[in-house]
């Protein structure tokens, strides 16, 4: 396998992480911690897959994945914004629910083959480039537009943003929905391009790795992108070591690499200084006083 193909497979392994992590980044920048990424990715994966398996174009499949993620996210939004429920518990509920529901609606599609998203350039499919474009667009939007400024303000100090007449709940609702759609896209990419097939729990913790990437990337889109590609290369390294059989290492140990890498990265690279970059209002409920 040439180096070029390895680079391509890194990009493909990184793309679902890029989507999910960027979505979560926007959500967290608005001050909301959504631990339901894994569940939303699974729902995106299964709904995108069902759409394509039923004959739809892959673009429709990707849109179905995004929509599924956003729908699930709206449940989370109802809990944490409407009912002021604990964000950690609500996010866990979302993951548990999404895991179960995706398994339920996908049970007839296990093993069904679909056509992979076709490549357009350098053997890569358009979603890879879309993910790169999204990270640039999100960075520009966050730092160069008034809406981006308002989103950051809401995540920094919701009370103050409210006092200035910004509608905290609306901003957060949109951020949560966007995060859900992006997670759904990431999931759909897994089932439509990366594998491409549907299996229960196929995200295998990528949603959680995406959450870790946001911390690792210090809530900056550029760094999150780099982090996702680093993780993509860990995954590809693992696959190549496995398939080449050069190393006499059991495949299970190689499969542990991404998880061990996540822990190591979180432990070694997240200094207190970096953590202090977290949006100040992250995880805090906001009650309208009126």
């Amino acid at each position: 396998m040439t180096d070029f193909l390895i680079l391509g497979s890194i990009a493909m392994a990184a793309t679902p992480l890029v989507f999910a992590a960027l979505g979560e980044l926007v959500t967290e920048r608005a001050g909301v911690l959504n631990l339901g990424v894994e569940g939303m990715m699974l729902m995106g994966a299964v709904c995108g897959f069902i759409a394509v398996a039923s004959g739809a174009h892959w673009i429709v499949g990707a849109a179905a994945g995004a929509l599924a993620g956003a729908c699930l996210a709206s449940l989370f939004a109802a809990l944490v914004l409407g009912f002021a429920a604990n964000q950690v518990a609500s996010g866990l509920a979302l993951t548990i629910f999404g895991t179960g529901l995706s398994a339920l609606i996908g049970s007839n599609y296990v093993g069904t083959p679909v056509d992979k998203i076709p490549a357009v350039l350098w053997g890569l499919d358009p979603m890879v480039f879309a993910a790169l474009a999204m990270s640039a667009a999100i960075a520009l939007w966050l730092y160069r537009t008034r809406q981006g400024l308002i989103l950051r303000a809401v995540g920094e100090n919701a009370e103050a943003a409210h006092a200035h007449g910004h509608t905290v709940l609306k901003v957060r609702l949109l951020a949560i929905m966007f995060g859900g759609a992006m997670s759904g896209l990431g999931g759909a990419y897994l089932s439509l391009a990366y594998t491409p097939l549907w299996a229960e729990g196929m995200t295998a913790g990528r949603g959680w790795i995406a959450l870790a990437l946001v911390v690792f990337g210090a809530w900056r889109p550029g760094r999150v992108l780099i982090g996702a590609y680093l993780f993509g290369s860990v995954g590809v390294l693992q696959l190549h070591a496995q398939s080449s059989g050069l190393l006499a290492i059991p495949s299970e140990i190689l499969s542990m690499l991404p998880y061990i890498a996540t822990i190591a990265v979180l432990a070694l690279l997240t200094t207190r200084q970096q953590q202090s970059r977290a949006p100040a209002a992250l995880g805090q409920a906001f009650h309208r006083l009126r």
Binding site: G82, A89, A93, I96, F97, T99, G100
Partner: peptide, 13 residues
């Protein structure tokens, strides 16, 4: 799994 997820949702609400 769906039941269990739903239950936690409704409980939090």
């Amino acid at each position: 799994g769906v039941f269990q997820g739903l239950l936690l949702f409704f409980l939090l609400a």
